[in-house]
């Protein structure tokens, strides 16, 4: 390559003038683009992960529509709707937190992150209440499962998939809250600026992704069969 011996020493053992990026990157811009692309690729794998569950649910739902429909009537649509609104609200506050970080407004970052975390925790609280309710009604799949209906076996399958899907989603929410805690500490210390906001931007992508999963879970689990 380049027989004319183009030899601009870009790298000199970490002796960069602007040390705002890791040594193996050429610029902060390259680092930001890499982090963001990495996050998107990660979200693609997450999508395929949930995709397997969505497929299983859709296949079985279309195989046994009556049993799944009957089972889905045991979910509380009002709580589900409430949680959906809560999560959409948290996406808004998350977006505002990222925007504030890009503008370098430290206090606003902290406020919006705290709001996001409160909304996230509210969602999890409601979810825990719903789970508890299912346990009381003997709707936990397994040996103690009791269901008054024509096809308890496939109703049990509905609840199995319900717990698997919402449980994995809740797990992602909990991980998200952990990430936001780190972001909160970084934000409070004023680590974000118009020149550096990678971590909070990627955390935002993750948070929005988890919200979008719920936007699909809610109608699939709660709303089908609720017309009329």
């Amino acid at each position: 390559m380049s027989p004319d011996g183009h030899a601009t020493a870009v790298h000199g053992g970490g002796a960069h003038a602007a040390a705002a990026h890791a040594g193996h990157f050429d610029s902060a811009e390259q680092q930001r683009e890499s982090a963001s692309l990495g996050m998107w690729v990660f979200l693609v794998t997450e999508l395929m992960f949930f995709g397997g569950l969505f497929l299983a649910y859709i296949v079985y739902r279309s195989a046994w529509p009556e049993a799944f429909g009957a089972a889905s009537h045991h979910l509380d649509v009002r709580l589900g709707t409430f949680n959906t609104i809560v999560l959409i609200g948290s996406s808004l506050t998350m977006a505002l937190a990222v925007r504030s970080a890009q503008l370098g407004r430290r206090q606003a970052v902290v406020i919006f992150l705290v709001l996001t975390m409160i909304l996230g925790a509210t969602f999890l609280g409601v979810k825990a209440y719903e789970y508890h309710h299912k346990a009381v009604e003997h709707l936990l799949p397994g040996h103690g499962f009791q269901f008054e209906g024509a096809d308890p076996r496939h109703a049990s399958m509905f609840f199995c998939l319900y717990f698997a899907m919402t449980g994995l989603h809740a797990l992602h929410m909990i991980v998200g809250l952990g990430i936001l805690t780190v972001m909160l500490i970084m934000g409070a210390r004023g680590r974000f600026s118009a020149a550096y906001y990678n971590p909070i931007e990627c955390s935002g992508l993750y948070w929005h992704f988890v919200d979008i999963i719920w936007i699909f879970l809610f109608p699939l689990l709660y709303l089908l069969e609720r017309h009329g």
Partner: peptide
């Protein structure tokens, strides 16, 4: 890979909780 991961998870759930998937 994520698809086989979630499949393994479902097999695990089936074995641990005795549910039918």
């Amino acid at each position: 890979t994520p698809v086989v991961a979630v499949t393994i998870l479902l097999v695990g759930a089936e074995r641990l909780f005795g549910v039918g998937i």
